[in-house]
Design a protein around this nucleic acid. Structure first.
Length: 642
RNA sequence: GCCGGAGUAGCGUAGUGGUAGCGCAACCCCUUGGUAAGGGGUAGGUCGUGAGUUCGAUUCUCACCUCCGGCACCA
């Protein structure tokens, strides 16, 4: 027997209470199985989990969920319990109850929970015969629990955990008593949630909470949440006037304000440059089309409910486009293509409309009108892997440029149990998946596989990020399509003079302007690098007497040509009737990268005093030196270190 | 779409069955100040929209719109 941390049996006893020391031994069978009450396998390595161990968090959270369920059932008799797992940072428990919980209930429930913890009720584990357990829970009116037991694998033990005289079906493990939950927990929110995650089922009421080992950890967590809220793109977007919405226009239809438009355009210049280097060719196609096109592409009726309703034009249905693929396919199909021309890369920053579910809309992250960094690559089968790799490298280039590290790549595969959602051509799926696998292997980028996340026409690699409030989104994508060649008759003439099918790669490394800008706003906390900053330089004259010189500085910067397509540097001046300190504060709050403080001294010497957004004072420098610095940063898209 | 919560000036907020305050921003005046808020004044709101209850609705009720927290969905 090996004990972790050199803990002695008497210390165990002290930690969990006399008489239970033996039961508190935790078996580590496969590195993650803990059980306080199951008989310990003689071969298993033994260790002890106390509240102080990092591994204890999951146990604490699960125990807290139980205490929550106890409290709720005591306060609201007749409420059914369902499941209550530990999750990242906390736990939840789903309840079935006719009356909804209200925010006012949370403090009451929390108070009851603290009573239960204080009572330090002992935990007891029992194993019941399956039939007895089902009958027992049915009799109690706990129909969801009975259903869970019915669905348990035949060989799985039905374990019941008691905390005092309250009990629950549970796989465990749990600490030896409710007192081990401690006081570092807090109920955070009430939500609706479907039974078994299926919208066709009844909706339950979920209560979320957070739980930690001690108050310090809890406070640190709550503080972190507060800090994250400050980065929320919806808040920053409003403060910095990046975008807005209007109920008169409609939900999910953003209005880009001048500051936001700068970011949008700079991203587009970036894509234009990089895509030109990569041999892409730009096109422009309409935002609406006859419905026949989407039937041909098979998007209708797959996505009918997620599209804006059609416009009836002279008796014919026209749809706002939810994506651009068919249009590009038609461009490809408008001419005959030799194998010599391939790969043909067609690109468009294209406006699309999707009637997304109203409840899913969120700032710029999830919208109904958006502009996509789209392109379709038409290539021979033997070119597909290399093209896929090239696109992966393009992604990497963008991500590196913007310092985006907090993401992962998801290899999105079909769900073979839901073939109705995917084109039923198993051979094509396998070939396509192998091509991506090889491409990923060659490129060396790490990824995770996810079943049931593929597009209906092929597998893909999605780049997954999290918004500041924790929601996961795909921000970029790289997809392989084996269907388009069939539906749109996309071919090329090979060396043999015969027609051959093409592979189509759909890719959007910069995603949509909407989501990408939302992400970048949170990524940079709106302190955008010079190339993206809506205002790059603010000139701050100290007194009215130097306004004229300050204006000259502005003009000089404004007229400084910058490659990348911008006409000149984005500069403004603060001639308001305020003290310099106030002007600095205002510029600071707008997160403007450079403040040029000019007074009599600078005016006399043709210099500017440079203050960075970081607060660092670079002192006075000749205007020429400053111009060259900012120009370099804007053109290279890389800010100089402070 | 579903469950719950919310909508008061550009932004952030207080408040009430008898038609509304505060701070910041805006504008004007004084101040001409050297690296995160100088002082004074002015203007700005049919309290999300519509209907109902009432002598009277921003306040109560209903519907709709929009937003927020989840769930479901996400080509």
């Amino acid at each position: 027997m090996a004990f972790a941390h050199g803990v002695t049996p008497s210390e165990i006893a002290a930690a969990i209470g006399p008489g239970l020391a033996k039961a508190a031994l935790v078996a580590e069978v496969d590195g993650r199985q803990w059980d306080l009450f199951r008989p310990i396998d003689g071969n298993a390595q033994l260790r002890i989990i106390t509240r102080k161990d990092p591994e204890a968090l999951e146990l604490i959270r699960h125990d807290t969920a139980h205490v929550l369920a106890m409290a709720v059932q005591q306060l609201f008799p007749g409420t059914q319990v369902t499941i209550g797992p530990a999750i990242e940072d906390g736990f939840y428990y789903d309840f079935a109850r006719n009356e909804p919980f209200t925010p006012d209930d949370l403090p009451k429930i929390e108070a009851k929970m603290r009573e239960i913890v204080k009572a330090d009720l002992p935990t007891r584990r029992e194993v019941w015969p399956r039939d007895k357990a089902i009958e027992h829970f049915e009799q109690m009116g706990e129909h969801y629990k009975a259903e869970i037991i019915r669905d348990l694998p035949r060989d799985e033990e039905v374990s019941i955990y008691w905390h005092g005289d309250w009990h629950d079906l549970c796989r465990g493990p749990h600490f030896a008593s409710t007192g081990k939950v401690g006081d570092a927990f807090k109920l955070t929110k009430i939500a609706g949630a479907y039974w078994r995650g299926d919208a066709r089922n009844a909706q339950l009421q979920r209560i979320y909470g957070t739980a930690w080992r001690d108050q310090k950890e809890l406070e640190a967590y709550l503080h972190k949440l507060e800090e994250q809220e400050k980065r929320d793109h919806r808040k920053l977007g409003k403060e910095l006037e990046l975008f807005t919405f209007s109920p008169d226009v409609g939900a999910g239809l953003p209005l880009w304000m001048p500051n936001g438009m700068v970011i949008r355009q700079e991203l587009e210049f970036l894509a234009l440059q990089e895509e030109r280097k990569e041999g892409y060719k730009r096109v422009a196609t309409p935002h609406i089309t006859k419905e026949a096109l989407f039937y041909r592409s098979r998007h209708l009726p797959y996505y009918k409910d997620d599209m804006y309703a059609p416009l009836d034009i002279d008796g014919e249905n026209y749809y706002l486009r939810p994506m651009n693929c068919p249009f590009h396919h038609l461009v490809y199909g408008a001419t005959r293509h030799s194998y010599r021309e391939l790969p043909l890369r067609i690109t468009e920053y294209a406006q699309d409309y999707r009637y997304e579910a109203s409840g899913g809309l969120s700032g710029l992250m999830r919208v109904r009108g958006f502009c996509m960094n789209d392109a379709h690559i038409y290539c021979r089968y033997d070119q597909a892997k290399d093209e896929f790799v090239r696109v992966m490298h393009l992604h990497a280039h963008y991500y590196e440029l913007m310092g985006i590290k907090n993401y992962y790549m998801r290899f999105s595969l079909p769900d073979l149990n839901k073939l109705e959602k995917y084109i039923d051509q198993p051979d094509k799926w396998i070939t396509a998946m192998n091509i991506i696998k090889e491409a990923m292997k060659e490129s060396g980028y790490p990824y995770v596989e996810a079943e049931g996340e593929a597009a209906f026409y092929g597998p893909k690699v999605d780049f997954m990020i999290r918004s500041v409030i924790g929601t996961e989104y795909a921000i970029s994508t790289n997809q392989l399509d084996f269907l388009a060649t069939q539906t749109f008759d996309l071919t090329y003439i090979g060396e043999d003079g015969a027609e051959h099918p093409v592979y189509v790669i759909h890719r959007a490394p910069l995603g949509t302007h909407e989501r990408f800008t939302a992400f970048l706003t949170e990524h940079y906390a709106a302190a955008f690098p010079v190339w993206l900053a809506p205002i790059q330089v603010r000139v701050i004259p100290i007194t009215e007497r130097v306004n004229e010189y300050a204006q000259k500085v502005v003009n000089r910067l404004f007229e400084t040509p910058v490659v990348n397509g911008t006409a000149g540097l984005r500069v403004d001046i603060d001639t308001s009737n305020e003290r310099m300190q106030k002007k600095i504060r205002d510029a600071q709050l707008k997160k403007i990268p450079y403040m040029l403080v000019v007074g009599e001294r600078e005016a006399a010497e043709g210099r500017v005093a440079v203050r960075l957004r970081s607060g660092k004072d670079l002192g006075a420098m000749p205007l020429d030196a400053f111009v060259s610095r900012v120009k370099t940063e804007a053109e290279s898209r890389i800010d100089m270190p402070d």
